[in-house]
Design a protein around this nucleic acid. Structure first.
Length: 841
RNA sequence: GCGAAAGUGGCGGAACUGGCAGACGCGCCGGACUUAGGAUCCGGUAGCCGCAAGGCUAUGGGGGUUCGAGUCCCCCCUUUCGCACCA
């Protein structure tokens, strides 16, 4: 048998790559660059199969591109700030810094045992001051430009844990940790003005041709642009109310106005109400209900009449103003005109409370419906009726006219609204980047001067899990002197959302050790954009949108010259077992370390790429992994079998005087080169790339059986067995190509085989084989003949047979004749392929 | 409700621009080699009819375009994912 020992090979070559710095790179203007990026990892402590899959996919591309002659940047780092470390500290008392750095060390070892070709000399961790110092720098720049600002806003507050929760930590309206009902609380928070870039972020999605449709669609929905109009409704005995609508064409049907419970006018109405206490009590119930209900799902539409009236500026009619629980305060103006005949929500509300329904739009080809008998609102565009001077005109054309008229009369204007909101970045947490701001009683909000960066996170803090940010309990951190007046001042004690860290890390990799600037612009100019970005779909919106935003901010600051950071995106599918995502609680976790220990890194890598297309879910199977291991043994055995005979220098060239079997193997070799190259580089169909390699190996076994040596199963080649030089040349060509193309998937085995074949240069630096179309072209092809769409015969003909010849041969074929005699041949089509199609009757 | 994707053997999945459906692997069946093998190698493996040659039926369902449809068009069903009262 063979002496194939995968774990020894893993160690040997990993050591070699580390010693040689094989994957370390420098910018080199003379060579084309390729930036291959795997989403950096949160150091949870243990790499799981999802990581293995993610990084294997990236590594196949990185290794392949390297062999294709590109200067490949393939870095890795750690998204090292975040809540879990702090929660662990609350639980166990271990300082977040220690647990994080320990976790990084452990996970790094795990990834290195997978043989991913990372430039480890560029490793970064966001929890280190040399990194987060530049988060603070960016913050200050954004503050200068008005892109970072402070405002009061509503947050999720757990009254039991006494802290703010992120939206993701609120499950069905309750705290994830203690289960208490989450409250809304008003806090002063820092925001990044991502809405300033909303339109650009939306428009530019059209340029992302190599992103999955799904991700582009999700971002488009998230930004949520809608065009409409802002219209002023005067209030009887009070200030005007402005509403936002996308359907100004229905305004003659607006029979009441609805306010969100949080609308600023509500408090004034309460004050002026006959019974302010009852009014406030009803509003309060909506405000409290609203938050929880919105997280759990649909709520019944409820509201009450404020008793106040507004004037519909188009009809001049007095209409009631109601407060409704389904109106969103944070969208538009927090107030809407209700058109029950043409909006389903307004319709339901009007029916419930007996409010008037007035039809003003008639769909093409329909009768004017009777409001009383409508089963539902009619929401389509159509011709206006009962709409004053606009009656008889058609929407959507009339919308522009109405907006223009409103503008002329000073009662409204066209407006574009976005669902996207500004990004709240304040976190009342310890384990994050301190926000570099100082509050002075005299000078107000004062940015920390650039030369005082970084604002270092203090090493010591109490992690009780109670109270505000742990930083607020450190007088030596909080109490400072004002940089402006030198008087006593207090530091901001909130830290930044960790999504800030990950919004520009890909730029830091271009120049990771720079202490003066985020990165040298020249370095980013060379390496950016990221050519291939691989990661989970869970980042489809936030991380990718924030990164696109940051790239634009840094562009406007002048550090980069690009709009979009990621040219091509691949979102890999999840790894499942028994149909469920692997998780400790389900007890279905497969430990990558154990698999690597048993089968070696290569078998696991091969399995991850072979068993499913990269973007689809992958169902784990032990048997499947063993199958991949067997394949590697098969490769090893066939190379080992021939290595003595074909190894070394002075191999004859593959000539013209080959036997049919030799020609067939050459053809297979070159066809495999073509397919594997396209499958990796263009299509990212790694599973079919692997299956092509398997086919080539099967072919090599079959070919070997037909030689004097016999196949690899024979213990020893017969004494004195001699092969034609052409046979050996053809074999050498096939085996070289196989080993090189296998190496992105199974680098350790491939390097060893490459060395056994007598190569001195590392395989990692070898050249990818080139495809020769002439060799791949078959001299004979099998041409199917269809009769009335069914294949009835197959002709073996010269590849260069003309259409006429094919037609003639097809009709002369015995099997074809069986189906055509006694019938009329109506048509014969010769298609490229080739294929002959005969139509008979 | 809106948006996106997907339905192909026992299973994971192939099928590139409309051109031989089921590549490759797993599993299963048979054979070889063996003291033995759960190692390895070789062969078979969509279903139905047939001794066979061969034939028929098959890519969620129903229509259509075409010499030819898993692929294109229309309608419907199912599943997964994302957003979810955005006025």
């Amino acid at each position: 048998m063979t002496d194939f020992k995968p774990t020894e090979l893993d160690k040997k070559w990993q050591q070699h790559w580390t010693n040689e710095g094989t994957f370390e790179v420098e910018a080199d203007q003379t060579r084309p660059k390729y930036y291959c990026l795997d989403m950096f990892a949160y150091p949870s402590g243990h790499a799981h199969m999802g990581h293995v899959r993610n990084y294997t996919i990236g590594d196949v591309m990185a290794r392949m591109k390297r062999m294709r002659g590109f200067n490949v940047l393939h870095p890795f780092g750690w998204d090292a700030f975040g809540l879990p470390a702090e929660n662990a500290a609350i639980k166990s008392g271990t300082h977040p810094e220690k647990s994080t750095l320990d976790n990084i060390a452990h996970m790094k070892g795990q990834l290195q045992r997978l043989g991913i070709s990372y430039a480890w000399n560029r490793e970064i961790a966001t929890c280190l001051p040399e990194y987060y110092k530049f988060n603070q720098w960016i913050f200050l720049k954004m503050f200068e430009r008005g892109l970072a600002y402070r405002k009061r806003s509503t947050v999720n507050w757990c009254p039991s844990c006494n802290t703010v929760l992120a939206n993701e930590q609120v499950l069905d309206g309750a705290c994830w940790r203690c289960g208490s009902a989450v409250e809304a609380r008003e806090l002063e928070q820092w925001f990044f003005k991502i809405t300033a870039y909303a339109d650009e972020l939306l428009q530019s999605l059209d340029t992302l041709h190599d992103w999955p449709d799904k991700v582009v669609a999700m971002q488009r929905n998230w930004i949520g642009r809608s065009e409409g109009a802002r219209v002023t409704f005067p209030v009887v005995g009070g200030p005007d109310i402005e509403i936002f609508t996308t359907r100004i064409d229905t305004i003659f049907g607006a029979t009441f106005v609805l306010l969100a419970p949080e609308h600023p006018m509500v408090d004034r109405f309460a004050r002026e109400a006959p019974d302010p206490a009852t009014f406030r009590e009803r509003v309060g119930r909506f405000r409290a209900l609203d938050r929880e209900a919105r997280l759990t799902g649909a709520i019944d539409k409820e509201g009450f009449d404020t008793g106040r009236k507004a004037i519909n500026p188009f009809t001049k009619a007095e209409i009631p103003i109601w407060i409704a629980n389904f109106v969103l305060a944070e969208y538009g103006t927090g107030a809407i005109m209700a058109v029950p005949a043409h909006d389903q929500r307004d319709f339901e509300f009007a029916r419930k409370y007996g409010l008037p329904i007035k039809v003003v739009v008639v769909e093409a080809g329909r009768e004017t419906p009777a409001a009383a008998s409508m089963p539902d609102a009619s929401t389509n565009y159509g011709r206006l009726v009962d709409s004053g001077e606009y009656s008889g005109q058609d929407a959507p054309a009339v919308i522009g006219r109405m907006i223009a008229d409103a503008e002329r009369q000073g009662i409204g204007r066209g407006e574009t609204q976005y669902r996207l909101k500004d990004w709240g970045i304040s976190r009342q947490r310890y384990w994050g980047t301190p926000i570099p701001i100082i509050y002075c009683e005299k000078d107000g909000v004062v940015p920390v001067p650039y030369d005082q960066l970084p604002v270092t996170l203090p090493k010591v803090a109490a992690f009780s899990g109670r109270g505000d940010s742990p930083l607020a309990q450190l007088p030596e951190f909080v109490n400072v002197t004002c940089p402006v007046c030198g008087g006593p001042a207090k530091r901001e004690t909130d830290t930044m959302d960790t999504f800030v860290d990950s919004s520009w890390y890909f730029l830091r990799f271009c120049d990771p050790a720079n202490d003066d600037v985020l990165f040298e612009p020249a370095a980013a100019a060379y390496w950016m954009p990221v050519d291939f970005y691989v990661g989970g779909i869970e980042h489809a919106i936030l991380h990718l949108l924030y990164s696109r935003f940051f790239t634009r901010v840094l562009r406007d600051i002048g550090l980069v010259k690009l709009d979009e950071p990621f040219s091509r995106l691949l979102t890999q599918g999840m790894v499942l077992k028994e149909g469920a995502v692997m998780s400790k609680s389900k007890g279905n976790v497969v430990d990558p370390d154990a698999m690597v220990e048993k089968y070696g890194a290569d078998a696991l890598r091969l399995y991850m790429t072979f068993v499913a297309p990269p973007e689809k879910e992958l169902e784990w199977s032990d048997a499947g992994l063993e199958g991949c291991f067997r394949f590697l043994v098969r490769v090893w055995r066939v190379v080992d079998h021939w290595v003595e005979t074909i190894g070394g220098e002075g191999m004859p060239q593959c000539g013209d005087d080959c036997t049919p079997a030799e020609r067939a193997l050459r053809r297979k070799t070159h066809e495999t080169i073509r397919r594997v190259t396209i499958d990796i580089e263009d299509r990212m169909h790694l599973n079919t790339a692997v299956s092509s390699l398997m086919e080539l190996v099967n072919e090599l076994y079959a070919f070997s059986e037909g030689t004097a040596h016999g196949g690899p199963t024979r213990a020893e080649p017969p004494a004195g067995a001699m092969e034609r030089p052409q046979t050996l040349a053809v074999l050498r060509e096939a085996i070289d190509a196989l080993v090189v193309m296998l190496s992105p998937f199974a680098p350790h085995v491939a390097e060893e085989l490459w060395q056994m074949l007598g190569n001195v240069e590392d395989l990692s630096r070898a050249a990818w084989p080139s495809f020769d179309a002439d060799v791949a072209r078959a001299e004979e092809v099998v041409v199917p003949v269809q009769i009335n769409g069914k294949v009835r015969a197959r002709l073996t003909v010269r590849a260069d047979a003309s259409e006429d010849e094919l037609r003639e041969l097809a009709l002369a074929d015995a099997a074809v004749k069986n189906h055509t005699t006694g019938k009329t041949i109506r048509k014969v089509v010769v298609a490229k392929g080739p294929l002959v199609s005969v139509v008979v009757q």
